[in-house]
Write a protein that binds this DNA or RNA. Structure first.
Lengths: 228, 228
DNA sequence: GTCTATACATAGATAGAC
DNA sequence: GTCTATCTATGTATAGAC
């Protein structure tokens, strides 16, 4: 699958996920109009990841966020109680968004070898569709209070586990090596992250997203595949 | 070489590098006493990377930096003209520090295969000796004005090139594959970075620095080495 | 060169009209 | 629910004595 096919095919379930978030937290939140809530939380999150990508979350002022999202200062504080709460909401929505998209794509395949390829390619392609979310997820965890870092940490581990599970399946089928599964899973995650963390470098080197995905797949396969 | 041997053996040439920095910029700077300058710029930089690691550069206040470094607010501004200038100085010192240490170690080896192993291991071990500097280098580039990002970007490219050169040498000798050299160089860099960017994860998984270095080496070798 | 005291700007957050 | 005006804290940076 090429990236163009992928991007035409993929549908971001962000509204659905934001609605779910709202319903789960309705009692804690001031806004009671669901449609308005969904619309404006999405706007707040999209604006936050956009501005944070450019200048970092701490450097982004509430006034800038207000302007970008189209909500006034007063309205904004009707939706969130503090700037820090925005980080939490973005992490919450982002985690479910990414999880949802990844699982949908990968579950279609059965064969471990093919599944590994699909998982790597999908993850990289997905980070190309919503780069700001992935970037935010990685860079803005330190802005959270220590107790709130558990969510993004678990999220990181979750993606790693996605790869580890595929590697385990393949090793049980006798086609992948059985040692160093945890290391390999983590290294795939690191290579995927490199794509969205150092995008400027890939632009500079004129590397396309497809080319990079192919490279990561071949690098990992040369290591894990057992000779027939 | 084990990490313990490495850490006993390595000597940080930070004073020497700071002195060189001071001499090159003497005319631009207020302080005229060289010994004092070297001592306090080192203190400022070490305190900056330490605090930035904990809470991020933007969240670190000048008052905190003043306390940590032992300089008063007034004294501090005698050394730097603004908070942003500190980022620039840390990047400047850090780049030469890392370059110096890496080159010293790697130049001792001749053979490309051995050189690749030494380069990867040294880089990972080094990031374990001065983790805060590496972390700062990666995370705090966005705090720079766009025109000042050129220095850290070139620095990133420089390390990548270190690996690319070794891969090129090996491919000319017919022991490494000749395609995808640029990709491989960048991926080594990414895997090294993963060590100091997601340290908490390796602690969680109980992975030692030696074990990780060995893994990265074997992963890369399985891909680049041509069968004999 | 270093200190303390302070100026000045900007940020996050709130009040209260609509 | 949303707006504008405003409060208050904090942060960077400077002044001027020593």
């Amino acid at each position: 699958m090429t990236f163009e096919e992928f991007s035409k095919d993929v549908v971001l379930p962000i509204e659905e996920i934001c609605r779910q978030f709202y319903r789960e937290n309705r009692d804690r939140l001031k806004i009671k109009n669901e449609e308005l809530a969904v619309k404006n939380y999405i706007s707040l999150c999209m604006s936050t990841v956009k501005l944070s990508r450019i200048k970092g979350f701490r450097a982004m002022s509430i006034r800038e966020l207000s302007q970008e999202s189209g909500l006034s200062l007063g309205a904004l504080y009707y939706y969130v109680s503090s700037k820090d709460e925005i980080v939490w909401i973005v992490h919450e929505l982002g985690h479910y968004l990414i999880m949802n998209l990844l699982l949908n794509r990968i579950s279609e395949t059965e064969d471990a070898e093919e599944k590994l390829r699909v998982a790597i390619r999908t993850h990289i392609f997905l980070s190309e569709i919503i780069p700001d979310w992935f970037y935010f997820y990685f860079m803005e965890t330190k802005n959270l209070e220590i107790e709130n870092r558990i969510v993004p940490m678990e999220s990181e581990v979750w993606t790693e586990k996605l790869f580890v599970d595929i590697l385990t399946q393949g090793s049980e089928q006798g086609i992948f090596r059985t040692d160093t599964i945890a290391h390999t899973g983590a290294s795939i995650k690191a290579l995927v992250q490199d794509w969205y963390l150092k995008r400027w470098r890939f632009v500079q080197r004129n590397v396309s997203v497809e080319e990079y995905a192919d490279f990561v797949i071949s690098l990992i396969e040369s290591y894990v595949m057992l000779k027939k």
